[in-house]
Simulated scan of single mutants.
Amino acid sequence: MNIHAGYIPGCIGRVVEMHASFYARTVGFGAAFEAKVATELSAFCLRFEPERDGLWLAQGATGIQGSVVIDGSHHEEAGAHLRWFIASDASRGQGVGAQLLEAAMAFCRARGYRKVYLWTFDELHAARHLYEKHGFVLARTQRGAQWGKEVNEQLFTFDAP
């Protein structure tokens, strides 16, 4: 699997599709979630600044198989925001997620980002394992519905030494 830095035509649709399919099947998220991912990812790509933001795509023989984003637009106040991290069903369990997270965290280190954060929820055990392996710690848990269905939301943070 090749990790590509930056936009590839069609990647917005593919990243949205991977999220929509996986989360509909595993936790019952619907149109509200898919629309949120599509809207926010599109807006991110339009304001993307390569010195501040990062987008990595895992590419295999059959196309894009995973993604992760670092949104650095508020890194000074809140920290860099890790978003849209996913591996396709076909590539899950093959180290793609670890490669994507390493690319994102190397970017943060190179930019001197002292804090990185992400929001997730408590049903994603494999992702949590990867986050913790890369130095993230659970900072807060709360009930919420930002993804269109009520879940136990989790805030994970990484503070550089």
Rank of each mutant, 00 (worst) to 15 (best):
M1L: 07
H4I: 10
H4F: 07
H4W: 08
Y7A: 06
Y7H: 11
I8Y: 09
I8M: 12
C11A: 03
G13D: 11
G13N: 05
V16I: 11
V16R: 09
M18N: 11
M18W: 07
A20Q: 10
A20V: 11
A20E: 08
F22W: 11
F22V: 11
R25M: 15
V27I: 14
V27G: 06
V27D: 12
G28R: 03
F29S: 10
F29C: 12
G30R: 08
F33Y: 09
E34N: 12
A35Q: 08
A35W: 03
K36Y: 11
V37D: 03
V37F: 06
A38H: 06
T39L: 09
E40M: 09
L41E: 13
F44K: 07
L46V: 03
F48Q: 14
E49K: 14
P50S: 06
E51K: 05
L55S: 10
L57W: 09
L57E: 12
Q59V: 04
Q59E: 13
G60L: 04
G60P: 09
G63I: 04
G63A: 10
G63E: 15
G66R: 08
V69R: 00
I70H: 00
D71C: 03
S73V: 09
H74R: 11
H74P: 00
H75G: 08
H75V: 09
E77M: 07
G79Y: 00
G79I: 03
G79C: 04
R83E: 11
R83N: 05
W84F: 13
F85I: 06
F85L: 10
I86C: 08
I86S: 04
D89W: 03
A90K: 05
S91A: 14
R92F: 03
G93C: 07
G93T: 03
V96H: 01
G97Q: 02
A98N: 14
A98C: 10
L100R: 06
L100Q: 13
L101H: 01
L101C: 05
E102P: 00
E102Y: 00
M105E: 01
C108Q: 01
R109I: 01
A110T: 02
A110G: 07
R111Y: 00
G112V: 06
R114F: 08
V116A: 10
Y117D: 04
Y117V: 04
W119C: 02
T120H: 02
F121T: 08
D122C: 01
L124I: 13
A126D: 14
R128V: 15
H129D: 01
L130T: 09
L130K: 04
Y131L: 10
E132N: 10
H134N: 02
G135V: 06
F136G: 03
F136W: 04
V137G: 01
V137W: 04
L138W: 08
A139T: 07
R140T: 12
R140S: 12
T141V: 14
T141F: 10
Q142L: 07
R143S: 12
A145H: 12
Q146S: 15
W147M: 15
W147N: 14
W147Y: 15
W147I: 14
G148V: 15
G148H: 14
G148Y: 15
K149Y: 02
E150P: 05
V151C: 08
E153M: 13
Q154K: 01
F156K: 04
T157F: 00
F158T: 05
A160C: 06
P161G: 12
